[in-house]
Computed example of a mutant assay.
Amino acid sequence: MRAFIFPGQGSQKVGMGAELAAASAAAREVFQEVDDALGQKLSAIMGEGPEDTLMLTENAQPAIMANAIAVLRVLEREGGISLADKGDCVAGHSLGEYTALCAVGAFTLADTARLLRLRGLAMQAAVPVGEGAMCALLGADIDKATALAEAAAQDEVCEVANDNDPGQVVLSGAKGAIERAVAMAKDLGIKRGVLLPVSAPFHCSLMKPAADAMDEALKRVPPQPFRLPLYANVTAASCTDPEAERLLLVQQVTGRVRWRESVLAMKAAGVDRFVELGGKVLGPMVSRTVEDVTVTSVVTMADIEALAKEL
């Protein structure tokens, strides 16, 4: 069985999509459609920067999605590959869940771009800049990370945001609590804690205003039936019902990204091939989480051509 997976924030970089756009009309059409939907030349920011503009959450989220969907469209059109025929399920990390839903027909490309722009703006607006923070814990399993979050909180928000793989967990919350967590990490047997260069504390209870904004947006633009099951971040379980998924997307804004558990659940369901489209971030996480699987990350035209031959 094969799962197609889609990366989240942090995989953006200046130059993303430029090679694909130069080589493929299918990719150019994706970038143009996203530009038109947003009323902005996002593709130019992706290709040329400036970096600080691309890194803004409201730009990074639709950019990462557009890049992954461009890879998918080139694969489908020029490789003659149908995701629904070649895949058994999909999943995405944080905003990547929206990309996955776009890939299987739950959202149009234009609606996905607009939803992610709104999501990025709402998440940024939920907490004043400088009041929230996130840190990555290296060499930490979920139990150690949870214990550290509880110890560092001291009446402030400090929560597990991403359970990425057996040795990497991300905490999110109030700046003071996250700084305490970094300082205390080694005391709890964690290799080290590293502050992340993010502009807001994603996936924690401080994001409640953003969850409310997405609840309203997803009532106006709800997911439609999708062609393959999706493993949702907040449940680490397969979902096929559009209304259930709408509610899960709202919960995802404040909820934990249970990526490690999602990978384990897909493996338990029989998935032995994972294909990451549009990034090279999730593949290593999968490899650190499960054994006896094939992991492929697809970004360039050469990657796409190689995958098309394999499929």
Rank of each mutant, 00 (worst) to 15 (best):
K175C: 12
R273N: 14
P7H: 10
D143G: 11
R273F: 10
V221I: 07
A21V: 15
L101A: 08
A68V: 02
M214F: 04
P201V: 08
E58M: 14
L42T: 00
D303Y: 08
G120Q: 00
R119Y: 08
R192D: 07
V263Y: 05
M266H: 06
S172V: 01
M207Y: 05
L118K: 11
M184H: 05
E58N: 13
A308N: 06
L230G: 03
A265L: 07
L307V: 13
D292C: 03
A147R: 13
M55P: 03
A26P: 01
G139W: 09
E261I: 07
M123S: 05
Q252H: 14
V104C: 02
A37M: 08
L311W: 13
V71Y: 03
L95Y: 10
D85I: 15
M285A: 10
E51Q: 13
V295E: 00
T300F: 13
V157L: 07
D292Y: 05
R73T: 06
A126I: 03
P166H: 08
T289L: 07
N164D: 04
L228W: 01
D88T: 12
A126C: 14
T146P: 09
A183S: 15
V221P: 00
R192L: 10
D241G: 09
E58S: 13
A70V: 02
P284Y: 13
S24F: 10
P50E: 13
A44L: 12
D292H: 12
L282Q: 05
G105M: 02
